[in-house]
Design a protein around this nucleic acid. Structure first.
Lengths: 223, 223
DNA sequence: GATGAATGTCTTGCATACAAGAATGTTGAC
DNA sequence: GTCAACATTCTTGTATGCAAGACATTCATC
C-alpha cells in the first residue's frame, strides 16, 4: 500500500502533474479545475482527468462539489500549523517506538545520514540538506517497527514538503536543525523513549513555529 | 473536508455500499471486485463503479493493480495491531493538546457522555455503549483544538470501527473501559497533559492488545 | 509427460456520446 | 432601474463503444 503507487495509467500521470502544480502554487485556493481544459492540455479524454480529480480530492488537495466541479484547496496558515502539529506528534510516536526497537545497525545508518547532512550544511547546499533531512526522518519512521505509522508519516511528510522547503531557507536554520538531529540520535541510542519523542517533537514543532513567523511576516508585509 | 461527504451521485452510493460490505466482512482479503458484476448489481454502468473503486483504493480498502483489477484488502492481524498503535498515539496527542485547551463546558460534556455510557453499561446494552464510547472519543478529538488532528482521528476511528466492535464484546471490558474514561476526564480536568495522554494511550492500547488475544485465540482454534 | 509458444477470450483503460443539473443571459413586469 | 421568471448554454455525471493488455486454453515440441 504505497501512498502513491506510480502506475502507468493516464489518470496517474495527470494526477501527479496536477499535484505538482498545486504544490508549486500554480493554482490558488478556490481555483476551479476545468475538466475539458486539462483534458486537452494533457491530450487525454475527460475520464482519466476525472479519475485524477478523485484522487486529489481524497488527498485533500482539491474539493469536489457535486455537479459543480473540482476546486483547489490550499491549506491556510491555521491548517498548516495544525498539520505541522500532527506531524510532530506522529514523528514523536515513531521515535518513542523506535527507542525501544532500534538496532545498532540502524543507529549507524542514522549517524551516517547525519554525517552527509553535515557535508551539505558545510557546502551551504540547502537542497541537498533538504534531501538528507527527509531521509533521516524517513529512517526514524522505519525504525518505529510500525509499517502503518511509517506510511502515515511519509504521507504527511510528502504533503508538507513544499511548505517545509520554504522555511528551511531561513537563516541559521540548517545548522540548528542538524544539532537537533544529533540530539534525537543520542536519545534513541540511550533507548530513552520519552527524550527521543520530546526531541523530535520539538524539532518538528520548530518548523511549524518558524513557518508561522514566516506567514505572519508575509502577511504584515502585504498590509 | 468531511472524510466521506455524502454526495448524491451514483459513484458515492456504490462506494458507500461497497465500503459497508467490506467492513462487514462480506468480502475476504484478496477477493477481486468485478466491475461489470457490481455495475449490474447496482443498476449502473461501469463508470461510477470504477470511480467508487478509486475512492476505496485511496482509503486503503481495496488495492488496484493496473490492468488487472481491484482487490479487497483486509488488514491482517499485524497491520491491525499497527493501526491500533497509531490510533493510540493520535488519541494521546489529542488528549495532550486538549489538556491545555479544554473548557469547563467541554469537561461537562465529557462527564455527561460518561454518564450516558454508564447507563448503557448498567443496561448491558453493548451497542449503545459502543455509540456513546465513540462520541466520547470524538469529543476528546474535538477538544484538541486541532481540526486536522480531529479529522485524522475520526478517519482512523472509522476504519477501525468494525474491529473495535468485536473486542468490546469481551467479558468485563465495558465496565473496565468506562473506568478508563473517567481517568481520562480526571487528567484533563487537572490539566495534566502527560497523564491524559498516557491514560488514553493505555486505554486504546488495551483495545489493541485485547484484539491481539482475540485473534490469537481464533487462530489457535482454527489449527 | 512436461514445458513453452500461440491463439482466443476476457477485463480493464480510455474515448466519445448523451442526459441532467447549474450557471448565465435575456426579456418582461413593476 | 430593479427584480424575477424563463430560456439558453455550459458543465458535470453516466452510459456505451473500442482498443490493448492480461489470463486461459490449446497445441506443438522436447
Amino acid at each position: 500500500m504505497e501512498p502513491t503507487a506510480p502506475q502507468d495509467t493516464q489518470a496517474d500521470r495527470v494526477a501527479a502533474a496536477l499535484e505538482g502544480l498545486i504544490f508549486d502554487g500554480v493554482f490558488s485556493d478556490g481555483d476551479r479545475l476545468d475538466e475539458v481544459r486539462i483534458a486537452e492540455q494533457y491530450g487525454v479524454s475527460r475520464t482519466p482527468v476525472r479519475e485524477a480529480f478523485q484522487r486529489l480530492a481524497q488527498s485533500g488537495l482539491v474539493r469536489q462539489l457535486p455537479r459543480r466541479g473540482a476546486f483547489v484547496r490550499q491549506p491556510g496558515p491555521i491548517e498548516l500549523i495544525e498539520m505541522f502539529e500532527v506531524m510532530a506528534e506522529l514523528e514523536a510516536a515513531a521515535a518513542r517506538l523506535a527507542a525501544g526497537r532500534i538496532t545498532d545497525e540502524a543507529l549507524d545508518l542514522l549517524k551516517d545520514l547525519n554525517r552527509r547532512s553535515d557535508d551539505a550544511v558545510r557546502e551551504r547546499d540547502a537542497d541537498r540538506y533538504y534531501d538528507e533531512n527527509e531521509r533521516f526522518h524517513a529512517a526514524v519512521y522505519a525504525q518505529s517497527g510500525n509499517g502503518f505509522l511509517e506510511r502515515e508519516c511519509l504521507r504527511l511528510q510528502r504533503r508538507l514538503r513544499p511548505f517545509r522547503r520554504r522555511q528551511l531557507r531561513l537563516r541559521g536554520r540548517l545548522r540548528q536543525s542538524l544539532g537537533e538531529h544529533r540530539a534525537i540520535v543520542a536519545a534513541l541510542e540511550d533507548g530513552d523513549a520519552t527524550a527521543a519523542a520530546d526531541a523530535i517533537r520539538a524539532h518538528v514543532t520548530v518548523q511549524g513555529e518558524k513557518f508561522h513567523h514566516l506567514i505572519a511576516s508575509l502577511r504584515q508585509a502585504a498590509e
